[in-house]
Design a protein around this nucleic acid. Structure first.
Lengths: 338, 338
DNA sequence: ACGCTATGCACAACCGATTGTGCATTCTCG
DNA sequence: CGAGAATGCACAATCGGTTGTGCATAGCGT
């Protein structure tokens, strides 16, 4: 490393001086267009080895400015702190890397204002595409992107102004509900009520899951009482409180629950433990997947959304943007622990 | 929105034309230096409202290039998929945002090659500072940063070429071990063996935790047999296999275990359930924190690292870089569930 | 009325890469 | 041997902001 001690970083101008050639030649060599520009192999390798030994690294800001392509792809995400969203972030990153793109992910706490702010930032950094995951207001962001001429894609929650990739929530919920009902039947408790708890009823996914829940019950000839549907938001405390309220009017726990996320499950389990209930007899179906939770409870079935396929679909949409901006792609989730 | 239909984005040159003024004036107004430059209030507000109505957004690449400051701060992270790392990412992001910096986080799967590659990318994007979280080889990255004149800070795992902020692993482990031993004593099982399982013995944190474990036992007059220390790596499968091997020579489960991460705990719990063991009697101490797991098990105590304070310390180091690059700041973790 | 300061803004040179174009040489072939 | 093609490279404009500097005009005091 012959690196200079001055803190300034090497530019192509420095390399040109060192190699006794011109900056444009250095540039052509370093970005691989030198054959097309008929630079001699000898000079090319001289420049390359010089760049290597001096630890040259191109200034991406300058490159982005000139090329009018940042090489950056953005994603906004509600949170990192569950397996679903964190694996979305991880796969998005590695898939972006595979394509020579730099992924930047911003988490926005399910807050429409933060979502907008993050989107604005990403647009300012000239992302080439923005993936909006679980956005509370995807259409506003899609609109912002469209106005800047930037492609956007919705993930996890659908929108109407950009193509969307989501799980087949209805069918996933239907299958999970069937799994719950089968377990109840095996244990001769078919007539016991099943409680649906967690999620937001303004939220597309929750509505679909409730529909799938009801549909499955209907398919085996069961009606669903509205009092057993509690979309009390996702937060653990809300779920815990909702269950407590629910229990105020009854003496026994429901034999089975369809819980709409691990964070809701957390509140429910905590509340039940706190009140000294024995958990292992309760049949849980959770629309979410957490292997640690699954390890702990013998009757916990979970829906694992197919993150790999979802991200694949997202990149397919990026590669070949669809004509119809309302395109909705649904990916089948998997039921774990049946 | 009077926005043009051409997909090109507005520049200060466009705004200058619209406001019948010069680009430099527009620039001065938009970045707040207009008072110093004696631009009239009238013209300034004209430009501002024009920028507003036209939806102007500055090109950060161009700004970064000229200012020689990207406004970006980077972090590399082993994974997102546990509460510890995901909350590190979240707090890092929001703290960066609060300071007008744009955070980019890259996860590198505990792989030294990916760590280097990510660091190289971040340096190419001219991050102003790089935080290396849980890096397997922090010094190589610190070296790369130093050569580019970029500040770097180690988080979670210490290094010798950049200041480090880590948890007080030894004392956290010591306290957790005491909590385990107290529980055993309460239940009149003081003499039962305690198994330490999970982590890597090349890893600073694991070594410190083992030291804290032994120290606590020594403080209550207990020796620690080496056969009860199993740093079998973090992965769930490794922990499950290590426990199976350990059990081959014995007839009864250990009454208590010090588990070195939630991912190891996952393997252990899964293995025990698989073999039909009853879990609730086992006392678990886990050096990690997951509220869902905590909700499930009545005798699970967890160490919650103080992420907020750690990130605060990181930003303090960024604000006032210490003279000594080997500075080590230890933050006290908290024991949950005692 | 004259000099002096203050006010209000425009000019132009960057930052570091990319890329269309053009100019010397050397080579090739009739 | 001379025209035309091929080879090998350098020049300069450009991307979109930022910022040091300089030039008019207005205002003010004597």
């Amino acid at each position: 490393m012959v690196s200079d001690s001055s803190s300034k970083r090497l530019t192509i101008y420095d390399l040109a001086r060192l190699a006794e050639t011109s900056p444009s030649t250095v540039s052509a060599v370093l970005n691989g267009t030198w054959q097309r520009r008929r630079i001699s192999k000898k000079l090319a390798s001289k420049i390359l080895s010089l760049a290597q030994s001096e630890g040259y690294s191109a200034n991406m800001q300058a490159r982005a400015l000139r090329r009018e392509r940042s090489g950056i792809i953005g994603m906004i995400l509600p949170l990192y702190d569950n397996r679903y969203f964190s694996s979305i972030a991880q796969h998005f990153e590695s898939e972006a890397r595979r394509r020579g793109l730099f992924a930047i992910v911003s988490c926005t706490n399910r807050d429409p204002k933060q979502e907008c702010e993050a989107a604005r930032m990403m647009l300012a950094y000239r992302v080439e595409c923005l993936v909006c995951t679980g956005a509370t207001d995807p259409d506003t962001i899609a609109q912002m992107c469209a106005e800047s001429g930037v492609q956007s894609i919705n993930l996890d929650l659908p929108g109407s102004k950009a193509p969307s990739v989501i799980s087949n929530n209805r069918d996933g919920a239907r299958q999970l509900t069937h799994a719950i009902l089968n377990r109840l039947a095996e244990e001769k408790r078919s007539d016991d009520p099943v409680l649906f708890i967690g999620g937001r009823d303004e939220d597309h996914n929750t509505r679909e899951r409730i529909a799938g829940f009801k549909q499955a019950r209907e398919e085996v000839g069961l009606a669903t009482a509205e009092e057993n549907i509690l979309p009390c938001d996702y937060a653990a405390d809300k779920a815990q409180a909702a269950l407590a309220t629910y229990m105020r009017n009854r003496s026994t726990l429901p034999s089975a629950m369809f819980v709409n996320s691990t964070i809701s499950l957390e509140g429910i389990v905590r509340g039940l433990q706190l009140n000294g209930y024995y958990l292992d007899d309760i049949i849980f179906g959770c629309f979410d997947w957490d292997p640690l939770a699954a390890a702990f409870h013998p009757r916990l079935m979970m829906v694992r959304q197919n993150v790999i396929e979802m991200i694949d679909r997202v990149f397919e949409l990026i590669d070949t943007p669809p004509r119809d901006s309302r395109l909705l792609i649904e990916v089948q989730p998997e039921i774990m622990g049946v």
